[in-house]
C-alpha cells in the first residue's frame, strides 16, 4: 500500500485522557489549556480542538451548573422528544447549545444515551431521567437549584 497510516505523533494516545481530566477539573476546556496541551504532546492545536469538539461530553465553552443533555436519537424522537425539546427551550429561554444568563442551565442535544426503554430521555449532569413529560420536566428543572 502506498504510504502509511497517518503519521502517529508521539503524544497522541494521551490526548483524550488529558482532555477528560481537564473537563472534570475546569468544567470545560479553556483555549489556553488546549494550546498548552498541544504543545506538551507535540501535536497541533487543530487536532486537540478536533477531538474536543467531536465528543458531546467535552465542552469548549463554559457550561451551566446543570448540563441538560436531551436525547435526539430515533427511539426518543418517535416518543415526542422533539416537543420535549421545544418545551425546554421555552422554559429555559435558550436554544440547544446555549447556557442561561444566570449560568444555571446548559441545554444540549445528544445521541442515544442508552435509555431507549424509557423514551424520551435526558441526562441532567450525571442523572438520568426517562419517560419525560412537560410536567415532569418542570419538576426536574425546579429541583435544580
Amino acid at each position: 500500500m502506498s504510504g502509511d497510516i497517518l503519521t502517529m505523533e508521539k503524544g497522541r494516545d494521551e490526548l483524550l485522557v488529558a482532555l477528560q481530566e481537564a473537563q472534570r477539573k475546569y468544567g470545560y476546556l479553556p483555549e489556553d489549556y488546549m494550546a498548552q496541551l498541544a504543545e506538551s504532546l507535540d501535536i497541533s492545536l487543530s487536532e486537540v480542538y478536533g477531538v474536543a469538539t467531536f465528543y458531546s461530553f467535552l465542552a469548549t465553552k463554559p457550561q451551566g451548573k446543570y448540563v441538560i443533555r436531551v436525547c435526539k436519537s430515533v427511539p426518543c424522537y418517535l416518543k415526542e422528544a422533539e416537543s420535549m425539546i421545544e418545551f425546554m427551550e421555552r422554559e429555559l429561554g435558550i436554544k440547544p447549545g446555549e447556557t442561561t444568563a444566570d449560568g444555571r442551565f446548559t441545554l444540549q442535544l445528544v445521541n442515544c444515551i442508552g435509555a431507549c426503554d424509557k423514551p424520551p430521555a435526558m441526562l441532567v449532569n450525571d442523572e438520568l431521567h426517562g419517560d419525560l413529560t412537560p410536567g415532569k420536566i418542570k419538576q426536574i428543572l425546579s429541583s435544580c437549584k
Binding site: G3, L6, T7, E31, M34, I43, S44, L45, S46, E47, Y49, G50, T53, F54, T60
Partner: peptide, 25 residues
C-alpha cells in the same frame, strides 16, 4: 501534515457539522 510538514489543519465537530479547522476554529 505529510508533505508541507506544517500540520495546520484538522477535522473539528462531527456529522454534518464536521469542518476542517485551524486551531480553535
Amino acid at each position: 501534515r505529510e508533505i508541507a510538514k506544517k500540520n495546520i489543519f484538522d477535522v473539528g465537530y462531527r456529522g454534518f457539522d464536521s469542518k476542517i479547522v485551524v486551531d480553535c476554529d
